[in-house]
Design a protein around this nucleic acid. Structure first.
Length: 818
DNA sequence: TGCCCCCCGTTTTTT
DNA sequence: ACGGGGGGCA
């Protein structure tokens, strides 16, 4: 949970402010004040800060001041001398949250927090694995493969095995492998339980095996390995484990509901006691353990604090298992459980909507968020004709809020899928609204950035074949796939790495031009490695110097600069941005080496680049939005098929998880919440008719003020209004004619619940032809230029007299022939 | 080997 | 609608 730099007015989020002396909340500031750390905390929060025991579970509803509690708990442990900074390991969801927590602890204590580990699961594991690399038979400089790297590797394996004929794709294989790795399985353990008379299974095992061995050979780990290998390290090497168990006396884990089995296992490993014999041995080896041992001579397990909220579990698709949180009391007998229900973030109207929605999930612990802050404004609803229309609404409202004094940085637009950004961006650009897409196609995922990074990786980890093959012909140097294969098989045949094969490529009998090109690249990488070699007296270069050297030597940047393709200019700028980032890295991490830089780059999370959002509206997926909060939130695309997403329909627990996602979105809003949907949405190039999301019906009608309700949007001249919350008698909307609408549309049985074309507003057999004059409800009169498409997807291209040219879906557009 | 054109799949969410 | 990949041609 993080608070982006979006709270200029501390009073709007009192509990989040960690400065001592803040006005008290919750009536907790009694006469027996002990520490300013407890200022402004309600009794539950206070207990969560002060409790000292083996295990503590904090069930923290959205906006209940969880980050503040966690931060103060850390500070409190230090202040009461229950812990040294180096004995604390706090695991957060994003690097940004970690950085923020570190800063706040520092601000509270007014002193350094050196030695404290505050980081994500993945970062912590990398740190441990790099230290202990030899034990696991890894190189210290191992590469970290992201999902794109995994897919490329799998693609090659699938191709070489002809496994595509059995229906294997990089995508489905990678998610399956990931799923098993999250359960701490490997290819062998999978094979033991597989039905090996099924050719499909045999093939999967083979792919899994080859994938594993390729990563081994490249000294690479994928995201799941980072956790899994650390667990393996601790289980296989008790002495190594003991060092970390001795060191970390207090573990704190945020977003516990989103931990998967591997992460759970890691926590278990870290919180085990160290047996007395082992403690004895450590003592003999000069490891300081004396003060830690109990009466039996053992070092007791570390204390564990977890914070979570099962209602916000939205990562089941990547293995998150809420049994971790629901079974916490069984797992850690004697655990204390503290429930935080008071919300300090949102208005009561927003919370009532959130409670109503999440209340429809069965099988959950009843929990009701409440606020002392008053009802606030109603939720604004809007039903647009199209995705663009919806974007226009969002943009208009943003501008209205801005004119009314709200800063852009305090507003955010959420959506279910990244594809929805297109329409939004188009309109926001047009209206000159400053915005920023958080996550999405990330900087480091851009091809040119991956190219530049592959050069660095090739230097840092020379056995990484994937990186080498990526740069082999980038920029173009006339080394084609045939040559690549030749080098590869030469390497295999002679027991060489790809890199060594490149150095010896003269033996391959290739043309002089190609041979030369390979040798040149090889020498470039060698001399780059030399400048990093600590033995080299010629001077140690830092990350940016190496990068610049490689860019210079390879021509990667100059080729882009010379290109006539206008997009290449942007690519060149991106690479320059990367150079700038390495310079920043040098400044911030004077001791940081190339590997540290690459690690940092590999582990950035979508929410991490929220740092410089100053003055811009943030656009992000609902998943990225978790843990953030904004004064005004626009939740777009609240339609069947999108939210809940159609892909979730067949998954067990899918619709419930989608509901939690909706809940997470709602609870991000402090003051204003906007829910919008579109009646039609462009997908894959054609237009689909959409139905309002079932979740809209779950919000009490009186909480929503529809500027344009689903009923209104299609009742004009239509035959079958859709009602939902449209029943709003007596409110100040512009459509009183909506009273007495039928109840919710029965749920259609198709998976694509929103591609219903017959039940929505229906212009039926309205025949239009070029030359016809029509009248549109919003755009006025116009002339049809052309009609394209067939059946329900017939589109009229209309030139309006005053509104310009539009394309309209004839079946549902609010139009009539005149 | 490199370029160009056509076809295909893509879109759920992420460390 | 768009980008990537594959196939065919120069």
């Amino acid at each position: 949970m993080t608070t982006p730099s979006s709270s200029p007015t501390p009073s709007s989020t009192p509990i989040i402010v960690d400065a001592p002396g803040h006005p008290a909340l919750g009536g907790a500031a009694g006469s027996e004040r002990t520490s300013p750390l407890l200022d402004g905390l309600n009794p539950e929060q206070r207990e969560a800060v002060e409790y000292r025991g083996q295990a503590l579970l904090i069930i923290a509803g959205a906006g209940s001041g969880k980050t503040s509690v966690l931060t103060r708990r850390v500070a409190s442990l230090l202040e009461t001398r229950d812990a040294w900074p180096s004995q604390i390991l706090a695991i957060t969801f994003t690097n940004k949250a970690a950085a923020e927590m570190r800063e706040r602890v520092q601000a509270i204590l007014g002193q350094g927090s050196e030695g404290m580990w505050i980081s994500t699961f993945h970062s912590s594991c990398v740190r441990i694995l790099r230290r202990e690399a030899e034990s696991v038979g890894l190189s210290k400089t191992f590469s970290i493969y992201d999902s794109a790297d995994t897919k490329v590797t799998l693609k090659r394996i699938i191709k070489s095995l002809n496994a595509d004929t059995l229906g294997f794709t990089p995508g489905n294989v990678s998610s399956k492998i990931s799923k098993y790795k999250n359960e701490l399985a490997d290819a062998d353990s999978y094979a033991r339980n597989a039905n090996m008379s099924d050719p499909q299974e045999v093939m999967f095992v083979e792919i899994f095996r080859q994938y594993t061995s390729r990563l081994r050979a490249a000294s690479a780990l994928d995201f799941d390995d980072l956790i899994g290998e650390t667990v393996y390290l601790f289980r296989a090497f008790p002495k190594v484990a003991a060092l970390y168990r001795r060191r970390f006396r207090h573990l704190l884990v945020d977003e516990y509901q989103d931990t998967n089995h591997a992460q759970y296992a890691l926590i278990r490993e870290l919180t085990r006691p160290v047996a007395s014999e082992l403690a004895e041995e450590m003592d003999r080896d000069g490891v300081h353990v004396r003060g830690l041992r109990d009466a039996t001579g053992a070092i007791p397990g570390a204390s564990l604090t977890v914070v979570g909220d099962s209602d916000q579990s939205i990562y089941a698709f990547r293995g998150a298992d809420t049994r971790n949180i629901s079974g916490f009391e069984q797992d850690f007998p004697g655990a204390r459980v503290i429930l935080l229900e008071q919300n300090y973030r949102s208005t009561q109207n927003i919370l009532s909507a959130a409670n109503a929605v999440i209340g429809h999930n069965f099988d959950r612990k009843e929990k009701k968020l409440w606020s002392a802050g008053g009802d606030g404004e109603k939720i604004t609803g809007y039903t647009a004709y199209s995705g663009h229309d919806e974007a226009q609404f969002v943009s208009d409202e943003i501008e209205a809020l801005h004119s009314a004094g709200m800063a852009y940085r305090d507003m955010a637009v959420f959506y279910r899928t990244n594809a929805q950004t297109r329409a939004l961006e188009e309109i926001l650009v047009r209206s000159a609204t400053p915005y920023r897409v958080v996550g999405g196609t990330k900087f480091y995922e851009r091809a040119e950035i991956k190219d530049a990074l592959a050069y660095l990786i090739s230097v840092a980890n020379p056995v990484d074949e994937l990186a080498l093959r990526r740069i082999l012909n980038t920029p173009k140097r006339g080394i084609g796939p045939a040559t690549e294969t030749a080098i590869s098989s030469f390497a295999d045949d002679n027991g060489l790495t790809f890199r060594q094969a490149m150095r010896n490529c003269s033996a391959l009998g290739l043309g002089p031009k190609v041979t030369n090109a390979i040798l040149q690249l090889s020498e470039l990488l060698d001399s780059a490695a030399l400048t990093l070699d600590p033995e080299n007296p010629a001077g140690q270069s830092n990350v940016s110097e190496v990068l610049e050297f490689l860019l210079e030597g390879s021509g990667l940047l100059s080729v882009l600069r010379k290109s006539r393709d206008p997009q290449d200019e942007a690519r060149a700028e991106n690479i320059e941005e990367l150079v700038a980032q390495t310079k920043d890295f040098n400044k911030e991490n004077p001791d940081g080496g190339l590997v540290d830089f690459l690690t940092q780059v590999s582990l950035v999370a979508a929410a991490d680049d929220l740092d410089d959002v100053s003055g811009t509206v943030s656009l992000m997926t609902l998943h990225t939005a978790k843990g953030l909060e904004y004064d005004a939130v626009f939740l777009t695309g609240v339609e069947e098929g999108l939210l809940p997403h159609q892909m979730s329909a067949n998954e067990p627990g899918g619709p419930a998880e989608e509901r939690r996602l909706f809940y997470v979105g709602i609870t991000r809003a402090r003051k204003r919440l906007y829910l919008s949907l579109a009646m039609t949405r462009a997908q894959f190039g054609d237009i689909n008719v959409a139905m309002p999301s079932r979740y809209l019906q779950e919000i009490p009608a009186e909480l929503i003020d529809w500027k344009q309700s689903p009923g209104m949007a299609n009742s004009r001249g239509g035959t079958q209004p859709r009602a939902l919350n449209a029943r709003r008698d007596g409110f100040g909307g512009r459509s009183k004619e909506q009273a007495g609408l039928p109840p919710a549309t029965p749920k259609p049985k198709t998976a694509w619940a929103n591609t219903i074309t017959g039940t929505v507003r229906d212009n039926g057999g309205l025949e239009l032809a070029a030359g016809d004059r029509i009248r549109h409800h919003d755009f006025g009169e116009g002339r049809v230029n052309q009609v394209t498409g067939e059946g329900t997807k017939r589109i009229a291209h209309v030139q309006f007299d005053t509104s310009g040219a539009k394309k309209l879906l004839i079946k549902i557009a609010p139009i009539e022939k005149i």
